[in-house]
């Protein structure tokens, strides 16, 4: 994997030329997911959180991010994956997403952060059309990095919390 990273770092200067985007990847239930690195504001450790009453289970609550109230979404719960207890490697990725109601800053809880990849737009492949799986709507595309497959997430969809549409 290091070789891959080195290679990517070498080509870092040429990013602007092709349609290459950088993705921050993280682990969740042994799968690697990626989000556009430009949306990422910061990465924080798990901390105590204030619950928001009567919210869906995947909304863990809100934290104080230097004076801003930021809601925290558990991505495992959002994807319907089995819950694991939070540990020292559990991280919160704070992202900024442009939703219909305006730009929102939210945190997503994932198992661990993994890596940063530069991925050309053309390398991303569409998701196989499996209409039955609800989670496919969250997926922006799939991409192969070396041996691995990374699922690129569509954050706008993942964090669109119009509760009427989501399962609860």
């Amino acid at each position: 994997m290091e070789a891959v990273v080195d290679e990517l770092l070498d080509s870092a200067d040429e990013h602007q030329e092709d349609n290459i985007c950088q993705f921050l990847t993280f682990m969740m239930a042994d799968e690697e997911y990626g989000v556009d690195i430009l949306a990422v504001q910061e990465i924080r450790g798990w901390e105590e959180i204030t619950q928001i009453p009567n919210s869906p289970t995947y909304v863990k609550g809100a934290i104080n991010l230097r004076g801003t109230i930021v809601p925290i979404i558990d991505l495992r719960a959002r994807f319907g994956l089995p819950q694991v207890p939070y540990s020292s490697v559990t991280v919160v990725i704070v992202v900024k997403v442009g939703l219909q109601s305006g730009d929102k800053i939210m945190g997503i809880v994932v198992d661990a952060v993994s890596d940063v990849y530069s991925i050309s737009e053309s390398d991303a492949r569409d998701v196989p059309d499996v209409t039955n799986t609800e989670n496919t709507e969250f997926v922006h595309g799939l991409v192969n990095v070396g041996e691995k497959m990374v699922v690129l997430l569509d954050l706008e969809r993942v964090l669109n919390l119009e509760f009427g549409a989501s399962k609860n």
């Binding site: 928001i52 909304v59 809100a62 004076g67 801003t68 109230i69 930021v70 809601p71 109601s101 929102k104 800053i105 939210m106 919390l161």
Partner: peptide
């Protein structure tokens, strides 16, 4: 502080 700003 507004809760709506980043949530709803």
């Amino acid at each position: 502080k507004s809760l709506e700003a980043n949530y709803q």
